[in-house]
Amino acid sequence: HNGKLCKLKGIAPLQLGKCNITGWLLGNPECDSLLPARSWSYIVETPNSENGACYPGDLIDYEELREQLSSVSSLERFEIFPKESSWPNHTFNGVTVSCSHRGKSSFYRNLLWLTKKGDSYPKLTNSYVNNKGKEVLVLWGVHHPSSSDEQQSLYSNGNAYVSVASSNYNRRFTPEIAARPKVRDQHGRMNYYWTLLEPGDTIIFEATGNLIAPWYAFALSRGFESGIITSNASMHECNTKCQTPQGAINSNLPFQNIHPVTIGECPKYVRSTKLRMVTGLRNIPSIQYRGLFGAIAGFIEGGWTGMIDGWYGYHHQNEQGSGYAADQKSTQNAINGITNKVNSVIEKMNTQFTAVGKEFNNLEKRMENLNKKVDDGFLDIWTYNAELLVLLENERTLDFHDLNVKNLYEKVKSQLKNNAKEIGNGCFEFYHKCDNECMESVRNGTYDYPKYSEESKLNREKIDGVKLESMGVYQILAIYSTVASSLVLLVSLGAISFWMCSNGSLQCRICI
């Protein structure tokens, strides 16, 4: 991952900044910058967002509201009850120091605090018919004063009620008058409520006091790749198909172990950190130390980045220098085999997901714990399936590479015959000098055995068991695999060879 928040398929997220979902939807004055928000790819909250409900109280069923919003990608904020005409018999300019803005008392931008007009609070009834052709999110509140005197001074009615009804919602609220500790300079409380109004449905408000009335509502448009994440990451000019709280993932790998919460087309989250597919040879310690064997393909974004291909070729060293050249036929066979294998694994496992966190309130801790156990169970199954699949494929890959290298080895052996000696570690020792032209003939299969047989015969008789390297004779190393990324691999195959001279070296080696 890149540690950044990015656009998702070209669409920017909605960053709530210092506000949370509650503050944004109710219209906390400190969240005025969010009022123009219309569309987004996903919503970003920060872990310690401080601006929620400015007048103390709870947004009821907040967790369910977050779940609903996680599939919303755009909205239209509109005046559901026009301020100047909807409440002619009531005062609608209630403000509070708890919702101060720029040093002055204020109130929510989407709600109206209705109080008595003169000395009376006549029963009010108002309704709205949803003609938007889509779901409408309606929010309101109920004020709970701290004393009967406060109730009387604001609403005149000691036994007030609030009723809200639609086809799918029907509740009646009565204020709970009680002494409470002071929070944000208030002994009173406000509880906030919401409902989704279906197209064509009607919502009716009736009250004799204590109503925090809707002013603006939201017509919602769903987008199934949307979601809500909690993150401290910063926004950058970048684009992605998959976003996590820790950063964007741009990967076609089937798995990731970065974060379980994802938005967009994302690899499946697994616990494993070692889900690797081999593309090189079986481990040979001396070669492995030099980083030549054991190439791997990573299938977990965050564990290993991208696929690494092994390729086969020849390396030689003689009086004229040293050089490398790919054996294109065996390399292409290996590439085709690995590509098919990788595609097979991805096809089997690479279903892209959006995974969002589930919200539970403080009273639902047991449910949250149960949900976590269920999620953990599914996660263990996914991890096991992934590891088992790759384990089985790896064994076949190792066998496949062994065969490829063996074929190259036999190709060289059949040409050199007794003009060189096998020394048991995949290397041959020449009994004759071999210049670049000679080396090329070994690589392309045109090695002239009779041409060098007499010199080889004489050297075999002279050496008589002495280690060949100390006599200045020449080696050919018969097994060799270097490691390159897919891009470098293609470039390498396009070149005939490249040279690395070893000044004054008397050794001649050709490596497979």
Rank of each mutant, 00 (worst) to 15 (best):
N361E: 01
T383H: 11
D399K: 06
L363H: 06
E455W: 12
R366T: 14
C238V: 06
A420P: 02
G445H: 06
Y324N: 03
L408T: 04
S505W: 04
L489Q: 11
Y474F: 14
F299Y: 10
L398T: 05
W499L: 07
Y289D: 01
L281T: 09
S414V: 14
V356D: 06
A325N: 02
M439T: 13
N343R: 12
G302R: 11
I381W: 09
Y480V: 15
D380C: 14
G280C: 08
I249S: 03
A495S: 09
V442K: 04
N369Q: 05
C508Q: 10
C434N: 07
H316Y: 09
G357F: 09
S492V: 02
N333Q: 07
H432C: 13
G294P: 01
T279W: 11
Y447F: 11
T262N: 09
V473M: 13
Q328L: 11
S441M: 10
S485H: 01
A386I: 15
S344H: 02
V374S: 07
G303M: 09
G264M: 02
Q243H: 12
K348D: 00
L493E: 00
G313E: 08
T273Y: 08
K413L: 02
I510W: 01
L468F: 04
L458W: 06
L416K: 04
S322R: 05
N407K: 15
T305I: 15
C238I: 05
Q243C: 05
F360I: 05
E469C: 03
G313A: 00
K348T: 12
Q288S: 09
Q246H: 04
A355F: 08
S453M: 03
R366I: 09
C438D: 04
L403K: 04
N343P: 00
Q415L: 15
M367K: 09
I284N: 12
L416M: 09
I512N: 04
N404A: 13
E301A: 06
Q328E: 07
E429M: 08
A334M: 06
D399V: 09
F299Q: 04
S492H: 07
P267F: 04
L489S: 06
Y447C: 08
F378P: 05
A325G: 01
L458D: 01
S497D: 00
Q256D: 04
L403I: 14
T383Q: 14
T262K: 02
H315R: 12
Q328I: 15
F378Y: 10
A233V: 11
E359T: 12
R282D: 09
A295V: 11
L292N: 01
H401A: 05
V491Q: 00
I476K: 03
E440V: 07
Y474S: 09
E461N: 14
E410C: 02
E422W: 06
F430Y: 11
R366Y: 10
G323N: 13
I463H: 04
F400H: 06
A326Q: 04
I335M: 15
D380A: 12
D464S: 14
G321H: 01
V412M: 11
Q475R: 07
F498D: 00
V278W: 07
G472D: 13
N394D: 07
S441E: 08
K433T: 12
D399W: 08
R396C: 08
N361V: 06
M439F: 04
K433G: 11
N419R: 00
E395R: 11
A420R: 07
N340G: 05
K358W: 12
V356H: 02
Q352D: 08
Y452M: 11
L379P: 06
G337W: 00
K411C: 04
I510R: 01
I346G: 02
F293M: 13
R443A: 10
P260R: 14
L506M: 10
Q243P: 04
G313I: 04
C238A: 04
N252V: 03
N407F: 00
Q246F: 11
C242L: 05
V473L: 15
I423Y: 09
I512V: 14
M471V: 14
K467P: 10
S344C: 15
N385R: 03
K451F: 07
S456M: 10
N404F: 03
G426N: 12
W499C: 06
K341D: 04
Y447D: 07
R509D: 08
S414M: 10
Y269I: 09
N385F: 07
L490M: 12
G313S: 02
L487F: 13
R460H: 14
Q507V: 15
V261F: 11
L275E: 08
N459S: 13
F255M: 14
S286M: 09
I476T: 11
I512M: 13
H316M: 15
R509K: 13
I512H: 02
Q317N: 10
N350H: 11
I510Q: 02
S505R: 04
I423R: 07
L477C: 14
W304S: 03
K433D: 02
E440D: 13
D375F: 10
R276M: 05
G302C: 07
E461P: 09
N371L: 05
A297S: 15
M277Q: 05
S492M: 02
N257A: 05
N444P: 00
T354Y: 14
Y312I: 05
Y409M: 10
T397A: 11
N362C: 08
K417V: 03
R509P: 01
V278P: 03
S234G: 14
R509M: 15
G280A: 06
N283E: 10
T240W: 03
F293K: 01
Q328G: 00
A495D: 06
C508L: 13
T240C: 13
L487Q: 06
P245F: 05
G280K: 05
L392P: 08
Y447I: 04
C427K: 07
G298I: 04
F378V: 05
D435H: 06
E395Q: 09
K274M: 11
G426C: 10
Q288N: 12
N239P: 00
K241L: 12
E368W: 04
G310T: 05
Q320M: 08
S414Q: 04
V270R: 00
Y449A: 14
M367G: 05
S497P: 03
I263N: 03
K358V: 11
D375S: 07
D435E: 08
V412A: 13
N333Y: 08
S505A: 09
